[in-house]
Design a protein around this nucleic acid. Structure first.
Lengths: 315, 315
DNA sequence: CTGAAAGCGCTTACAG
DNA sequence: CTGAAAGCGCTTACAG
């Protein structure tokens, strides 16, 4: 339409030098009229484009994942990478399959059995968040060990003796978080009390609101809750408030994750807070490494991050 | 390495029929050893791949954006699209530039002057969220008009008379939200009271915590706050609590956005709640339309969404 | 300042 | 069951 060759179009569209301004304008006009947009595939084939990381989160409306996503975005931008975020709440398999078309590496929590994992992911470099040691894939583990110890010690120091974990999971198995609580409680000679919720679809406020009274019925003398996450903790506090049970005097509440929620609820929530910035840094560096280097055989690399106990007013 | 042609590699990698199992295995083994991964660009050039939408948000850790992002993800997946989320908090220009390499259309809040907008976005179809009417681009407007009326009426009905808007903006101009509040107040014959914050970087809890006392100093007889968003409202409630001022008896507080935060704070927050699911639906349909149809000249299309007043316990 | 040629890495017919 | 040819839509030298 502009009566020029494709190279000249390239020059006009990409703002390159060595083109007559009038020619350039003619090309740009024609492009507008034809609604012409360069194909990202054609261009990428030649220029390689910026590498992209796929981030698989569980639920963006959960502060933990929102904060991780936000941190990943920052860290990626700094390194010239692009991030593609997907929520793998519904159909994990097809979500992942779709994602792979667009990215050079994947990071996130992928809740799939090992065999399916290999099948879905193929040769794409993957870094798994918080997966059991059984996978032959590199990963970042959320290690609650020492932080759970700190939380239990803190509750003991404030005079609490009957600590109940309000757990949550998709199935009947105890969560990783709860099992670490059990270990910490036993190390202190406490009876490990765990109430397990496998009914609710999401570990939200409602879980805590319903689990707290159930726990009190089962262990009337309980004096502290450690909760699966901050949402469950907020639900527990909301229930206790409704019963005019004083937090923390009568019952202390400790959350996990360190989301912004904890600063909104009254009293402000004691919680195990992750440095997600740090997680994002590790993940980006590992992803770049995996994409650039040939695959190292042998032990898959494992990182570990530990939350720290942030004491506020709910304990 | 496997001593086969590229077509056979294609067959092996893509799980196609018409290939000898032994050959396939040989190819797969070689692929693994060479860490071979098909180029997404080469493949996309032929298959076209799934179309991608770029979503530009302000801050993923803000519940409004997290919920919008989550809804967009859902709606996009249903339509076979992929979503690429970016946060345009720091360097908007380069963030957008980077994004364009990867997507077929863009949706979101892009805080750039009109000329720069055209320059940055080029021919990419764009749908703007909550931009002034001045742009010659299609968009979705957040229209507070009738909802502000409802909020003011509700406060009047509960006996409040001196309503103060706690506003926030990046610069000295009144926000769109505040100007709609002013209009609603004037329609009811009220003096429109607005306190403007242009100091804080983000419209977070701290803004409310600091603005609330400032407002009380300036208008000692105030009896209600309407806040720029839920975060500011939570900050105001936190301050009032600290002063043992009863909410809502002494001072009512109304937020905007309808984020999950409002259910966590005590008392639970009355707020103007958007149906972000609806916004996501409109945006996805419009994006698909823009990519598939040639560009229509004439008036750019405009949609409008109105929040609804959700009365809880802070008013 | 403009254009002809080569090639990026795949897949889709088609031939054998 | 396997391979030779063509082509997807760009950009990068290079020639004029």
């Amino acid at each position: 339409m502009a009566k020029v060759s494709r190279q000249t179009v390239t020059r006009a569209m990409n703002d390159m030098s060595g083109i007559n301004p009038a020619t350039k304008q003619r090309v740009l006009d024609a492009a507008r009229e034809l609604a012409y947009r360069p194909s990202r595939f054609g261009r990428g084939l030649v220029t390689q484009g910026a590498p992209a990381l796929g981030l698989v989160v569980v639920d963006l409306t959960n502060g933990f994942w929102a904060e991780l996503a936000s941190s990943m975005l920052d860290e990626a931008t700094e390194r010239g990478w692009t991030v593609l975020i997907v929520e793998a709440s519904h159909d994990v398999r097809s979500t992942i399959g779709n994602l792979l078309e667009h990215v050079d590496a994947v990071f996130g929590l992928i809740d799939l059995p090992d065999e399916e994992l290999d099948e879905s992911l193929g040769a794409t470099p993957v870094l798994l968040l918080d997966r059991p040691e059984t996978t032959a894939r590199p990963g970042i583990r959320l290690d609650f060990g020492s932080a759970m110890d700190a939380a239990v010690s803190h509750l003991l120091a404030t005079g609490k003796r009957r600590i109940v974990m309000l757990d949550w999971a998709r199935d009947d198995a105890m969560s990783h978080r709860a099992s670490q609580f059990v270990a910490a409680a036993q190390r202190r000679g406490l009876e490990p009390l765990v109430l397990h919720d496998a009914i609710s679809r999401e570990p939200g406020i409602e879980v805590g609101r319903q689990a707290a009274p159930a726990a009190r019925e089962r262990w009337p003398d309980l004096d502290a809750f450690v909760c699966f996450n901050d949402y469950v903790a907020v639900g527990a506090i909301k229930y206790l408030q409704s019963q005019e049970i004083d937090v923390p005097r009568d019952i202390s509440v400790v959350g996990i994750d360190g989301t912004a929620l904890g600063l909104v609820v009254t009293p402000e929530l004691t919680t195990l807070r992750f440095d997600l910035r740090e997680v994002a840094r590790i993940a980006m560096d590992a992803a770049i490494e995996m994409v650039e280097r040939p695959p190292v055989s042998g032990e898959p690399q494992q990182w570990s991050v530990t939350p720290s106990l942030t004491v506020r007013h709910s304990s």
